[in-house]
Structure formats: C-alpha cells, structure tokens
Design a protein around this nucleic acid. Structure first.
Length: 635
RNA sequence: GCUCACAUAGCUCAGCAGGUAGAGCACUUCCUUGGUAAGGAAGAGGUCAUCGGUUCAAAUCCGAUUGUGAGCACCA
C-alpha cells in the first residue's frame, strides 16, 4: 500500500506498487507528458521507477533545477548513438554532463573532423525525432562484461570491472538498438530531449585522465531547455570572447608575445604602467601590514637548488645555464630558497619574529608548451611573494592576517566571490601526523574565525605542508589560481634555519609560511583586463585623461595644461593631431581612456577644460584644479 | 608534452578547384582649422611563419620544424 507524499505536502495512497509515470498520469496528463525523471526520497530516478513503499516524490520536469543535468546527460547518450551509427567501429567510453553542457569520449583510429560534428548533430536531431523510448535494465555483472567484450567495447568492460563498485548493480540504458552502461537516470524517451543542443569542439583527452593512457577523442556539446536558452548561452560566449585579455591587450597596446620567446611577455609602455601601478599598490598594502621588502638573485648555483630539493623534484621545469668556469646555475623557478637563504644569514632572535619578508621576484619556469595561455600561464612571471617566519604560536594569527589581507585586496578590485580551496595532507608527505594536524588546523581555524567557506581538496596539499588557494574566474569561465597561502615544514629543515629563543637557546626552528596575494602579477593583470573589459578604474588606468584640442590654435594652452596636470601626478596624454574633435573622441573612447578633456576657444579663454567621461557623459567645463580633484575621486 | 585545427600587410580578414597577392582600418604626405564616437585625396607597405618535397608553375598540394588556438595532462 504505497503512500506517495508530494512536495506540496499532499499525499496519495495506492493499492499496489505503481510506477512514477503512472503517478504523474494520475495527477494530470500534462504532468505525465512533462515528466522527465523524479526524485524519490531525495534520490534521482527514472519515471519507470516502481514505487513499492511509502515515499516522498517530486516529479522533475524541464522547469526543475535538476532537469538541465538530465538533459545534458541524455544529449551525451544521443550523441554517442549518433556517432556509433555514423562511424561503426568507434568505441564509447564515458560521457558525463558538465557545466553548460556535456562531452563524450570516443576511441577511434581516425580523427573526427569539424565537418563530422555537423553530421553528428544532424543525426542527433534524427534520433530525437525517432522518439526512442529509453529503458533501464539491470544486468548481471559477468554477463554485462561478456556482452560488451563481445561487441568490442573494451572500455566499457574496464568500467564495469574497475569503476562500478562491487555490490552496486550494473544498469544498462537502452534506446532503440543502442545501449550503454550508465548509472542514470535518463529521460523517458529520446523525443524528450529538447532540440536545443549544439556540438562545440573537438579535443583529445586521456583515457581515465591519465597521460600514460591512450588518447581518446572528446566531443564537447552544450544543451539547454529550449532554443532560447541555447541562444542566450551562445551570446554569452560571444560577449566573453570580446573580453579576452589577449585581444584587449593588443587592442589597447598593453603587451605582445613573440615567437622567439614563447610564454614571455613584452610589456608595452601602457601595460607596464599598469604593472607598476599594481606593484605600488601592493607595496603600500604590504608596508601597512608590517612586511619588509627584499630582493634575492635570479640566478643561483646548483648547490642551492640541491639543498632546497628543487634540483631533484622540479628540474624539468627549470631553466639552467652553464658558465665558462663549468658551474651550473639555475634561474629561480621560485623565490623561497632565496628567502630562506636570506633568513639563514646572520643571527635571528625570537624578537625578530614574525618576520614578514616580501619579494617581487620574477620566476622562470619551463612550463609545458601546451599549458601556455596569454598572460594567464607564462614562463616568466613576477610574484608578489612573501615568506613569513614565525613561531608555532604565531602561526594561526599570521594565517588570519594573510587571508583577511588577500580578501580585502581583492575587494578593492571588485572580486567578492572568491573560491577558496583547501588542500590537505597528501599520501606522500614528510612530517608526523601531529604536525599536520596542527598545520591544517591553523588554516581551517583561520577560515572558521573569519566565517569563510572553502572547498576541500583532500590529499592535494604539497608534500611539505597544506595550502590555501584563492581562485578567480576569467571571462571565458576558466578558473585561475591567484593567491596562495602555504605552510612549509620542509625548507626550514633542509636549510637548517633557527632562531634564538627567550632562554638563549639557538636551536628553535621557525615555522615558514609562503604567501602570494596577486599570485602572478602577469596573471592578475590578465584577469583584471577581462574583469574590467579594459576599462580600468582611474587609479589603475595607464592613461587617465586625454587632452583633445579642437584646432591647432589651442595647442599652446593644451601644452600648458598638460604640464600642470602632470605636475599633479595625472597620467595625461595630448592629442594635437590635425583631426576633428569627434574623431579624437571616438579614438580615445575606444582606447578606454576614462576622461577626455576637450580644449577649444571657450576653455582657453576661461582657463578651463570641457570634461567628458569614457562612458560618454558630458560633465561640462571646469577648472584644472576641479579636474584633478575629479580624477582623484573617480578612482 | 599529447590530440585536433590554424599561421597571408602593423591590426581584422578575403584569396573558390595550383598560373608569382587583395580589402577595410592603421601608417606617410597633401587639402581641410572643424565643439563631443570616423572630413577628403594621394601614397607607401607582404620571400604568403620557416625549411624541404611534388610540379613547367606552389600562398594554394605533401612532409618536417617553430609558433598560436581549443581541450587533455601538467601547474611546490
């Protein structure tokens, strides 16, 4: 006698076991038609699921939050069927729903071509049109293995063997002649899949995400509830592409890359102004936060890297060089060994702690060619790095200070929803569990004290200590790690650093924290370009104002004004070209100059400037002093 | 690093199926002195990424190299 309780609290009693589809029909034929799947006591199931006992039921229609994932997962299946119909001999592997869409990985000798995507899409439409009913079957494990082995689907066999846990049933979903091992749930039939999908791109992907395995062919697609949603999504992508920092960097004349130096930035005057502006900002924030700034060599002897462990653990990522005297030097890939060496020099007392030593170090890493990506992933970058040497008791307080500093700094740029990742002890690690407890505790506690959420990445910490990572998202939805806070118990040990404690003992080992807030200045600038779409706030803007003369009669006054503004610290340029003012306005507006200062007869006469904003607002005429004030306030 | 794609003027791109290159913008010169998103005219500019092959002939076809893009792997 199952009793079914619905989300609105009402309930229905049935005299015998009944399928969800039938319950939906019982409620209304409209609902039965719209039903895609259901939630039974909070768990997703197919509409064919048979209710045998009292449950809470929620029918899922395309309006439900869960619908998109179902739609996307189904789209993956339909795509797989289309591919196997069109390209016999292609093996299927896995095909999950992902953010905004889905993918499916295939094994096939011959590569798919972009033209194939169109064909596959057409065939998908066809399969939707066939409205094949999708049925769930539970197979016996060995039987399932045999069937898939017989039809040459070795990846599926591996999935049944290795991925589906013993004890869990092996479910197979069948649509027409085609079937696939899958946990489900799925839509009732292929006809329920909205015709609002599109195949997006082709890529290689390693089987089971391991680069030792063979490479499969992955097809990415996007799928939505209806055509309108799909269109909106495609528009969003287009909008995002316009913000791409690589495009804007060229358009705004900020930097360029060259074939001779892959992954290395050539900063143009405007880009470098931006860079220095950020540097100044960070310098000031750090000074206020009690840091001292140092500088260590870029090229150091191999022995130092042996001591730090980099020579053995990180060498394939290091640039090294041999000199005439046969010594081997390496360009620093990280600042920490230099910093520890710095700490080791001279005697340190407990009175010196916490010692917060910052360095804007430029590090060099031989990153894999395929990883390079504009300013986001380069081979030479500048870190706003710092190493904090402190006692164990000071550690937690220092962590709190770092976290609140980094978040406060991000807020200045309008980044308020920052993802914080906490990576804890990996399998391969040094140090006792007691120490790890303490270090992880310090990080977790500091987040707790501040009331911050974080995403836990168990086992992802460095071998020498746990870490926090602060992640920002770029215009195209990719996440980039910017800031980081790491606790290190390896380097102090390796370099055998110590301080003199209250009793005069010289063997106290300090705790070492690594932290970077922007992370890489290069990457942070890349993110900022996309975040602001190139329209930087005045304080950051490489050019804050452009002086535009109407005719050459006004040049002399403009030159005078330029001097006065520059004396006040305004980054101003003059445009005396023989062009109409409308032309100049258009050009500097497109160059994202925040303020345009027009100079004509009226302004010369009254010693004023006609001020217009980048957004097109006319602020009228004002004196030089007022303009300077306005520029100061606008940041 | 792996898979696939791409590489033509400073930039954005055209050049269909091999017959020694084209547009717009930018640039230079001249005319125009014009008040809030493009005034006009003329001119200059390319060993078609590099190297090799096929061919009477290669930007175009083939191969390698380098770089770029997308994804994967990597990211102390």
């Amino acid at each position: 006698m199952p009793k079914v309780t619905l989300p609105d609290g009402s309930s229905r009693d049935y005299s015998k076991a009944i399928s969800i589809f039938d319950v939906a029909s019982d409620i209304g034929t409209g609902l039965a038609k719209a039903a895609l799947a259901a939630k039974v006591d909070g768990e997703l199931v197919d509409t064919s699921f048979v209710i045998e006992k009292d449950i809470e039921l929620a029918i899922i229609t395309s309006k439900s939050d869960e619908a998109l994932e179902l739609i996307r997962h189904d789209a993956a299946h339909v795509m797989a069927q289309a591919v196997q119909e069109l390209f016999p001999g292609t093996q299927v592997t896995i095909g999950p729903a992902i953010e905004d869409g889905f993918y499916y990985d295939f094994a096939r000798q011959e590569p798919f071509s972009p033209d194939d995507l169109e064909k596959i899409e057409v065939r998908m439409e066809d399969i939707v049109g066939r409205d094949l009913s999708i049925e769930r079957e539970v197979w016996e494990r060995d039987e399932a293995k045999r069937v898939f082995a017989d039809i040459g689907e070795k990846y599926k066999v591996e999935i049944i063997e290795d991925i589906i846990p013993e004890g869990e049933e092996v479910s197979v979903y069948r649509q027409g002649d085609w079937f696939d091992v899958c946990r489900g749930p799925h839509l009732p039939s292929t006809g329920k899949l909205p015709r609002a999908f599109k195949l997006m791109k082709l890529a290689g992907a390693y089987w089971r995400g391991n680069s030792d395995n063979e490479m499969l062919q992955r097809i990415y697609g996007t799928a939505w509830r209806d055509k309108k949603e799909l269109k909106l999504h495609l528009q969003r992508l287009e909008e995002a592409e316009k913000r791409d920092h690589r495009k804007l960097g060229r358009k705004l004349d900020l930097f360029h890359f060259s074939d001779e130096a892959p992954g290395s930035v050539f900063w143009h005057p405007k880009g470098w102004t931006l860079f220095l502006q950020l540097l100044d900002y960070m310098r000031q924030r750090q000074e206020e936060a009690g840091y001292v700034e140092v500088n260590t060599p870029d090229v150091m002897d191999r022995s130092l890297w042996e001591t730090s462990g980099h020579w053995f653990n990180y060498r394939e990522n290091m640039f090294s060089t041999q000199t005439e005297d046969d010594r081997i030097f390496a360009l620093k890939p990280m600042n920490c060994p230099g910093s520890v060496s710095m700490f080791a020099q001279g005697l340190k007392s407990y009175r010196d702690l916490p010692l917060r030593m910052a360095e804007f170090g430029k590090v060099h890493r031989y990153e894999p060619s395929g990883a390079l990506h504009g300013l986001m992933r380069v081979r030479h970058f500048t870190q706003d790095d710092a190493h904090i040497y402190c006692t164990e008791d000071q550690m937690e307080g220092e962590c709190i200070d770092v976290v609140s500093l980094v978040l406060d700094i991000y807020k200045d740029f309008g980044f308020t929803d920052v993802i914080i990742k906490l990576s804890t002890r990996p399998e391969k690690r040094i140090g006792s569990d007691d120490v790890w407890d303490k270090l992880e505790g310090a990080l977790i506690n500091s987040l707790k004290v501040m009331g911050l959420d974080y995403v836990l990445y168990p086992g992802e910490g460095a071998f020498y200590g746990p870490k926090l990572e602060f992640v920002l998202r770029d215009a195209i939805g990719r996440d980039w790690q910017c800031g980081t806070l790491q606790v290190d118990m390896n380097l102090p040990e390796r370099f055998d650093i110590s301080y003199v404690d209250e009793t005069g003992g010289r063997d106290k080992r300090p705790v070492m924290l690594h932290r970077a807030l922007f992370g890489s200045l290069e990457r942070f600038i890349g993110i900022l370009i996309e975040h602001y779409e190139g329209k930087f706030p005045v304080w950051l803007s490489p050019v804050q104002a452009a002086l535009l003369t109407i005719t050459d009669k006004h040049d002399q006054y403009a030159r005078e004004v330029e001097k006065r503004l520059k004396a006040q610290g305004v980054r101003v340029i003059s445009d005396f070209r023989n062009e109409k003012v409308g032309f100049k306005i258009r050009e500097h507006t497109l160059q994202a100059v925040p303020f345009l200062l027009v100079v004509g007869n009226r302004e010369v006469e009254n010693d004023e400037l006609a001020v217009r904003t980048q957004g097109g607002e006319d602020l009228g005429s004002m004196s030089i002093e007022e303009t300077v004030k306005l520029l100061g306030q606008a940041s």
